[in-house]
Design a protein around this nucleic acid. Sequence first.
DNA 1: CCTGCGATCGTCT
DNA 2: GACGATCGCAGGA
Length: 210
Amino acid sequence: MPDALRSRLVLSDYETDPITLAKRLIGCTLVRIIDGEELAGKIVETEAYVGVKDRASHAYGGRRTARNEAMYARAGTAYVYFTYGMHFCMNVVCGRVDEPVAVLLRALQPIRGIPVMQFRRGPRCRRQADLCNGPGKLCQALGIDRTLNRIDLTTSDHMWIEPDTPVPTTTARMVQDRRVGIASAGLWANRLLRWYSTESDCVSVLRKQR
DNA sequence: CCTGCGATCGTCT
DNA sequence: GACGATCGCAGGA
């Protein structure tokens, strides 16, 4: 498709609160251009990090360091960080400048560039559904690393997000659940700030039955 | 299905 | 010096 006919989310789409954006992003398409090739996946799982009061957030208590500086930038900025000595995770910054709120992308359903994703993920990853079903996995599959930290998703030629068209995914087609991997966040670990599509087999962690 | 563990290193205390 | 918004594998039920 010619670039001129492709739409992407714009500043006003990102200038909202993280809960609204986390739900809005479900069904949208993350596009990554790397080595002249396009990789794309449908966003099927997100988490909201809701500001300085959120104990699970890197910006808890107003912490502001070189690592999390992107969280304080303009909405539509990518916040990519390195963790556990080997993985990257990608967030989409939202809210106002100097208000550290963001949405973590946790899983994608692969759409385009699947052979490249398989190569980047390595031979140990056999199932297509496992290519991008985790925040570290999707960054590995799409080649998202610290060079993309702080890029502007509304203007970048390397990565952007396209809207969920023609009909945005509604909350009726989403599961709302606790966030993953933040057990030490006290009461904030129980907040229902994760959303995932009921219609994808590429979600990282399913809700426990009760 | 589930739980536990090691890998590996940048970041912050 | 400790820990982490993770992952893949091993082992047991």
